[in-house]
């Protein structure tokens, strides 16, 4: 009887967790954080591009592939956009500084080295990514 109760409780809690995750994953959220320029510079974000798509990946990560494909395609098509993918495991100090909890996490960084938006768990939709890039271009241009 206890086992049945536990099973039902686990399934209900997991379903709730999964629904919340599904609603949040891949959303490009605003990223109100202080200047992370130095940390980002250590990862190769040097202001050489108008917008940098900085992707954190790991070996055990199924959605990292899809995120990589999307970012690579967008970087190839849109002028001034660069895609950098780093292995989160090899940069744990930076991962901690930037509060990266999961892979893939994608940071949209403007020319001034500020993280404009971030998405985790799943790749964002192409349209949302393009909108975030436009936003980063405008923000970077006004400085």
């Amino acid at each position: 009887m206890t086992g049945l109760v536990v099973a039902v409780a686990v399934l209900l809690a997991s379903a709730a967790f999964g629904l919340v995750r599904r609603a949040r994953d891949g959303k490009l959220r605003e990223s109100p954080r202080p200047d992370d320029g130095q940390v980002l510079a250590r990862l190769g974000v040097d202001g050489g591009a108008e917008v940098t798509l900085l992707q954190f990946s790991s070996a055990f990560c199924a959605p990292c592939r899809a995120t990589r494909a999307l970012c690579a395609a967008v970087a190839a098509e849109v002028e001034g956009v660069r895609h950098i993918e780093v292995d989160a495991e090899e940069h744990l100090d930076e991962v901690r500084a930037l509060k990266i909890m999961r892979t893939p996490t994608l940071l949209v960084v403007d020319a001034a080295g500020r993280v404009v938006r971030r998405a985790a768990g799943q790749p964002p939709s192409r349209a949302h990514l393009l909108a975030a890039i436009g936003e980063a271009t405008r923000v970077g241009g006004t400085r």
Partner: peptide, 8 residues
């Protein structure tokens, strides 16, 4: 997989 980075 999600726990992996946190464990690291």
């Amino acid at each position: 997989c999600e726990m992996y980075l946190l464990l690291q």
